[in-house]
Design a protein around this nucleic acid. Structure first.
Length: 636
DNA sequence: GTAGGGTTAG
C-alpha cells in the first residue's frame, strides 16, 4: 500500500550520497526504497514534477537510474507528456545521457506514437549501438514503412555494426511480398553466416517472409530446420499455408503439430479457421469453436472475426450472426465478414440493413465491396447504384476499380448491358478481366448475342486460356440457336490450346470431406454414384429437364456430351450426398469453379423431385436450391 | 533497453 505514504525529506546535502530513502507507511512501519523506486512512485502518482525536482539534486550515477525509472514508467503507460517533460529536463540540466538512455527515449517516443520525434532522438545521438539501430528499424517496420526500415538497416551495416538476432528478426519482417524477397534472401544468408538461422524468432520471421512471397517450400524448409519451435513459429507455417489458400495443407499441418502437443493461441485458431472456411468444413469449424471455449480463450476480436467468416462460408449464417451479436466489441473487419456472408447468400436486404446499422467503426473499401456485391447478388440494382454514387459524393472514400466492377455487375444483372458498357467507357480505369467476365455472364442470362460477342472478344484477348469463358460464349450461341457458331467456339478453343482447370466438388458427410472430380473414375463408390446420377437424371427428365449440351466443348457426339455432363463433379457430389446422408437435412456441396448452366438446372430440379434443400457454394456465391428454384434467381 | 505469427475482398 504505497499510495498514501509520505516521503520523509532528508537534508539535500545528504541526497546524492544516499542510496535509499526512508518512508513512513500508514501504519508507521519504516521501509526503505531505492531512489529510482521513489521517483517511479512519484511518477505513478502523477507527481512527476516533484520527481524531476528531486532528480536535479541527485548525483550522476543516481540520476541515470532515476531517468531510467521515469522513462520506463512513461513507456509502460504510453505517457507522452510526462516523457517529454523528462526529456526536456535532461536537456535543461545539461545531462549527458549515455547511449542507453538516449535509446530509451527513442523507444519512449516510438511507443507513444511519435515516430518523427523518435527519429530526431536517433539522429541526435552522439553514439549508437545495436539496440538503438534495431529499435529505430523496428519503429519504421511496425508502422508499415518497410523501405525506410530496410534503408536504415543497410546504413547500419555500412557503419560496420553487426546485426544480432533482434535486428534480423525485425528486418526480415519488413521484407514483405515479392519485392522484399530479394532483400530477404540476402538477410537469410547473413543469418546463416552468423549462425542465427535456427533461432526461433529469426526463423519464424524468415519462414513468414518466404510464405508471404508465395515461396511456401522455402518457408517449410526453414520450419523443418528450426531446432526449437514455439507457438509463433508453428502458427506462422499454418497461416503461411492458409494465406496461400492451401487449405488442406494448413489443416494437415495443424493436425500434425497439435498431435505433437503444440501450444495454440488465438492467432493459431484464427488462421486455421480461414482454411476451414475455404474447405467448407463446418464440422471442424464447430470443433475449433468448442476447443476455443474449453481453453477459455478470451474474446479476441481477431478470432471472433475469423469465426464469423468460417460460419458464413460454411453456410451457417445463423451461427455467424450469433458470434457477431455476442461480440462485446467489433472492428470494421467484423462488420465486413458479416456483410460478406449475407452477400454470398444473396441476402441483399440484410446487407443493406446491417450496413445502415454500422456504429463505432468507419467503413472501408472492403465494406463497400461487400455492400455493392451484396446488392448485386440480391438483385437490388437501384440500392446498389445509390451506394456507389454516395461513395463518389463522399470525398473520404474514393471508389477503387473493384467497386467499379461491382457496378458493372449490378447493371449487367439488371439487363442494362448497354449502360454497363457506357459505364466502362467512362470510368477512370482500364477494364478488368472481372468486369468483362461478369458482363459475359449477363449477356448469357439476358440473351444478348451481339454484346456477348463484343465482350467475349475483349475477354478472350485478355484471358485466352480460361475454358469457362468459351463455355459461356457457347451457351450464348446455343440459346440463340446459332449452332455453327457453337462449333466455331470449339475451334477457337482448340487453337488457343485452352487448359481446363479440373472441376472439383466436395461434400462433408459424417465428419469426412468427400471430393469428386469431373468424370471421376477413382472414387471407391464410383459405380453406385454414377447409377444414382442416372436415376436422378431419369426423374428430372419427367419434370422438364433437358441437358444443355452447349456446356460441353469437346468435339464428340451428343450422346457422349450427355455422358460428360453427367460426370460433372457437382452432380456426383449431390448424388453421393443423397445416397449417404440422413433424410431431410440440407445438402451442402462446394465447388472450386463457377457452376455451369446444366448443373444449375440439374440441381434445381433435383431439389424439386427429392424435396431436399441443396446448397451449392461455387467460386462466386452460394446457390440455395429448394423446390426447383435457386436463391440466385438464375443469375451468377 | 531492441525481435517473430493474426481476422474481412479480389
Amino acid at each position: 500500500m504505497l499510495a498514501k505514504r509520505t516521503p520523509l525529506n532528508p537534508p539535500h546535502s545528504k541526497l546524492s550520497s544516499l542510496s535509499s530513502y526512508t518512508f513512513l507507511s500508514q501504519s508507521s512501519t519504516q521501509i526503505n526504497l531505492p531512489p529510482d523506486a521513489h521517483l517511479k512512485f512519484l511518477c505513478l502518482n502523477g507527481r512527476l514534477k516533484e520527481a524531476l525536482i528531486e532528480m536535479s539534486i541527485l548525483g550522476t550515477d543516481v540520476r541515470f537510474r532515476g531517468y531510467d525509472a521515469l522513462i520506463t514508467e512513461c513507456v509502460n503507460r504510453k505517457a507522452l507528456r510526462e516523457g517529454q517533460l523528462v526529456h526536456s529536463h535532461m536537456i535543461k540540466t545539461h545531462y549527458r545521457a549515455p547511449v542507453y538512455l538516449d535509446t530509451r527515449l527513442l523507444i519512449m517516443y516510438d511507443k507513444c506514437g511519435k515516430l518523427d520525434d523518435a527519429r530526431e532522438v536517433f539522429d541526435g545521438m552522439p553514439q549508437r549501438n545495436i539496440v538503438s539501430w534495431t529499435a529505430m528499424i523496428s519503429a519504421y517496420s511496425q508502422r508499415g514503412f518497410q523501405s525506410l526500415a530496410f534503408g536504415l538497416f543497410r546504413w547500419m551495416l555500412r557503419t560496420g555494426l553487426f546485426p544480432n538476432e533482434f535486428t534480423l528478426a525485425t528486418v526480415l519482417a519488413c521484407c514483405i511480398g515479392h519485392l522484399g524477397l530479394e532483400h530477404g534472401r540476402q538477410v537469410h544468408s547473413l543469418a546463416i553466416k552468423n549462425n542465427y538461422n535456427s533461432h526461433v524468432y529469426v526463423g519464424s520471421s524468415l519462414l513468414n517472409m518466404y510464405a508471404k512471397a508465395s515461396e511456401i517450400h522455402d518457408a517449410r524448409m526453414v520450419f523443418e530446420f528450426l531446432t526449437v519451435r514455439d507457438v509463433v513459429s508453428c502458427t506462422s507455417i499454418i497461416s503461411g499455408y492458409a494465406q496461400l489458400n492451401l487449405d488442406n495443407e494448413a489443416l494437415e499441418m495443424f493436425r500434425k503439430l497439435y498431435n505433437q502437443g503444440m501450444e495454440c493461441n488465438y492467432v493459431t485458431f484464427a488462421s486455421l479457421l480461414t482454411s476451414l472456411a475455404g474447405l467448407s468444413a463446418l464440422e471442424y469449424g464447430k470443433q475449433v469453436h468448442g476447443l476455443v471455449i474449453r481453453l477459455q480463450l478470451p474474446f479476441y476480436i481477431v478470432l471472433q472475426n475469423s469465426m464469423i467468416y468460417m460460419y458464413a462460408k460454411c453456410g451457417s449464417l445463423l451461427y455467424a450472426r450469433r458470434v457477431f451479436d455476442y461480440m462485446p466489441e467489433r472492428t470494421v473487419i467484423s462488420w465486413n465478414a458479416m456483410l460478406l456472408g449475407y452477400g454470398d447468400h444473396g441476402l441483399g436486404r440484410e446487407v443493406l440493413c446491417l450496413f445502415k446499422s454500422m456504429r463505432d467503426v468507419k467503413s472501408d473499401a472492403v465494406t463497400y465491396t461487400a455492400v455493392l456485391s451484396g446488392c448485386s447478388h440480391g438483385g437490388l440494382t437501384e440500392e446498389g447504384l445509390g451506394v456507389f454514387y454516395s461513395m463518389v459524393g463522399d470525398k473520404e472514400m474514393e471508389p477503387e476499380i473493384g467497386h467499379y466492377a461491382c457496378v458493372v455487375d449490378l447493371l449487367g444483372r439488371a439487363g442494362r448491358i448497354e449502360k454497363a458498357l457506357e459505364f466502362i467507357r467512362n470510368m477512370p480505369f482500364e477494364p478488368s478481366i472481372a468486369m468483362w467476365g461478369s458482363l459475359l455472364g449477363a449477356c448469357r442470362v439476358h440473351g444478348n448475342v451481339s454484346a456477348g460477342e463484343y465482350v467475349a472478344q475483349k475477354l478472350l484477348s485478355m484471358e485466352p486460356k480460361n475454358a469457362g469463358n468459351y463455355v459461356i460464349l457457347s451457351n450464348i450461341y446455343a440459346d440463340a440457336g446459332r449452332w455453327e457458331d457453337v462449333v466455331k467456339v470449339r475451334e477457337m478453343m482448340k487453337e488457343n490450346t485452352v487448359i481446363k482447370e479440373p472441376g472439383k466438388s466436395s461434400i462433408n458427410l459424417n465428419k469426412t470431406v468427400h471430393t469428386f472430380r469431373s468424370g471421376d473414375r477413382s472414387h471407391p463408390q464410383k459405380d453406385k454414384v454414377n447409377e444414382k446420377v442416372r436415376e436422378l437424371y431419369e426423374k428430372i427428365r419427367e419434370v422438364g429437364y433437358t441437358p444443355d449440351l452447349s456446356c460441353v466443348l469437346h468435339d464428340v457426339d451428343d450422346e457422349q456430351k450427355e455422358r460428360i455432363l453427367l460426370g460433372h463433379s457437382e452432380k456426383l457430389a449431390i448424388a453421393f450426398g443423397l445416397m449417404f446422408s440422413s433424410q431431410g437435412g440440407i445438402l451442402r456441396v462446394t465447388k472450386n469453379l463457377r457452376i455451369c448452366v446444366d448443373c444449375h438446372n440439374f440441381a434445381k430440379l433435383v431439389s424439386k423431385v427429392t424435396k431436399r434443400e441443396l446448397s451449392v457454394r461455387d467460386s462466386k456465391r452460394f446457390h440455395l436450391m429448394a423446390n426447383g428454384t435457386c436463391s440466385c434467381g438464375d443469375f451468377w
